[in-house]
Design a protein around this nucleic acid. Structure first.
Lengths: 311, 311
DNA sequence: ATTCAGAACGTTAACGTTATCGTTCTATCT
DNA sequence: AGATAGAACGATAACGTTAACGTTCTGAAT
């Protein structure tokens, strides 16, 4: 016990004893055994982090932020990749439970409410990123997509665009739904309507297909607004393939501001989300929810319009 | 014991007993406690994975492959981000040891041999990606950068380029050193020499600075060959800023074939490395080294030249 | 009828940590 | 001198699992 107390800095030992213990520990290369600790305390000092697709450059930034905040607090991150498959989402939430993580952070959950809530319920603490949930179920870090979408439309209209089509990303995305709400509201406010909406995978390939379809169905559109930057990159390829110049003939706006957005040519106009900050805040919120029963609910992040060359 | 045997599928119980145990377990929502298991068996079924920078699109692909292979074998991945800082590399290797992972995979280790070997020694099993090491220390998955570099130079020479400069990436990178060896050998074979070499961070920003410096110091170069695709993207920006056209005035080759490489315009010629495969093979090798004392040493992956529009 | 093999199932102990409670000792106060 | 508080330290038990070894029982071979 004295050893345990000293090594955990809990005092209750004379200076001399502490010294002896510390030097013995270092001589023996002692490392506390996390299994024994976990068994005793039922805490793992580990946080589970679920992302839909680590290959989407949005998420590594979030992970980075989460990792910084977690390691600062002495926690480890157990990362899992959902690969955009809601069956797997359920399984992984359960797998993290078996692993006895102290809490989990789920990015862009795609499961329907009922299934999601059920899967999350047994966890001790949960934070969702970009998904709403009641405070009893989870804390939330959400992007104000509606406002973001609104800013995007305002900007396009200001630039004289009137025939705006939407590459809408996955149907099951909650962020996608809020974006659509914002798009529609703001278009209506300007006396306009959407010139076509196509759903697709949140990838460059998905965006390319969707944009190609829109260009074929509605050749007179003068602006494309995309679910995310990857979709926008795909749309750019589709335009290039159809020999349509950006931004002269068609303006293009993405969402997220992934690092490549500014490296493209023309550089992509987009709505920037503070990704690292999201990761950091998510961990902070989760740790607070782990620590106390008096649970904070979360924060909202408003995206910022970054005007580059595609509009 | 009978319960343990049944739940672990080790037989030794009658059909009826097994049935009773199984249904009780499911009714009680029983989940084996990994702490107790770990305490007893001293195995965590967890693998540590260290990457230099998760924000570099090369690594998410590797992680993806590693995750697939790990989860197929019932292992979890504990991910850590070194942020290109060799002090932190040492700390994280130690942190994974404290966490009692069954083995670790280290990507692109930047520590000098002595420090690296010392840090790795206490681990039960180690695989290095893109770094050589004796079989006693670690298994290795390495890219044959020398051959890759050679192919790049051959290709440029074939295209009529003679004044080739090199954006060389970080000085401490072992892959970078092998690339240089290949570049020099092949240049010599063609009766040429490098028209400038500049080291830099393995990022777009680093590449941009380095390329700008090369363009200023040696304005007559007609080709730039870069440590990786991020560097090449930076170099592209530097050329654009200096009003130099690619590929007309300067040809550009990257390394890795990250997803954005083909999305750029002009699309980037590069040396493709099978990233997912690397991750998968690393895990497979690690698991084999965990399982048996009779240790395989590893494999070599030869990069493939992908010719696009920058050459 | 006895022996024996093997299946079925149980007991014990140990993994390393730490909460809880107990003991010893020293210093201070009346 | 005796009482008392608190510091310093230790003993015990418990967390859940499973290796190692025991016990009991059934059925077949002698």
């Amino acid at each position: 016990m004295t050893v345990s107390r000293v090594l955990n800095g809990r005092g209750g030992a004379s200076a001399e004893t502490s010294q002896r213990i510390l030097s013995a520990a270092s001589e023996l290369n002692y490392r506390p055994n996390p299994f024994a600790r976990g068994l005793r305390s039922d805490r793992s000092k580990t946080i589970g982090l679920l992302v839909p697709d680590i290959t989407n450059p949005f998420f590594p930034e979030v992970i980075r932020g989460a990792e910084d905040a977690a390691s600062a607090a002495g926690y480890n991150l157990l990362l899992s990749n959902v690969v955009e498959n809601s069956r797997r989402e359920e399984e992984l939430i359960e797998a993290l439970l078996r692993h006895r993580v102290d809490g989990i952070i789920v990015c862009s959950a795609r499961l329907p409410d009922a299934a999601l809530h059920k899967a999350l319920a047994p966890h001790r603490a949960v934070v969702l990123i970009n998904r709403e949930a009641p405070n009893e179920i989870a804390g939330t870090i959400v992007t104000d997509y509606e406002t973001g979408a609104s800013r995007a439309i305002d900007h396009l209209v200001e630039r004289g665009r009137r025939k705006i089509a939407i590459v809408a990303g996955p149907r099951s995305s909650f962020g996608g739904k809020s974006r659509l709400v914002g798009f529609r509201k703001t278009l209506t406010a300007h006396g306009l309507k959407a010139h076509g909406i196509v759903y697709c995978d949140p990838t460059a390939a998905g965006g390319q297909t969707a944009a190609a379809q829109l260009l074929a169905e509605t050749p007179d559109i003068d602006a494309l607004i995309c679910y995310n930057d990857l979709n926008a990159i795909g749309a750019m390829k589709a335009c290039r393939a159809a020999n349509i110049s950006i931004p002269e003939q068609i303006a293009l706006i993405g969402f997220d501001d992934i690092p490549t957005a500014e490296l493209l040519s023309p550089a992509l106009t987009t709505l920037r989300v503070q990704k690292r900050e999201m990761g950091e805040e998510a961990v902070r919120l989760l740790l607070s929810r782990i620590a106390t029963k008096n649970r904070q609910h979360g924060i909202v992040i408003v995206p910022e319009l970054i005007i580059r060359e595609t509009t």
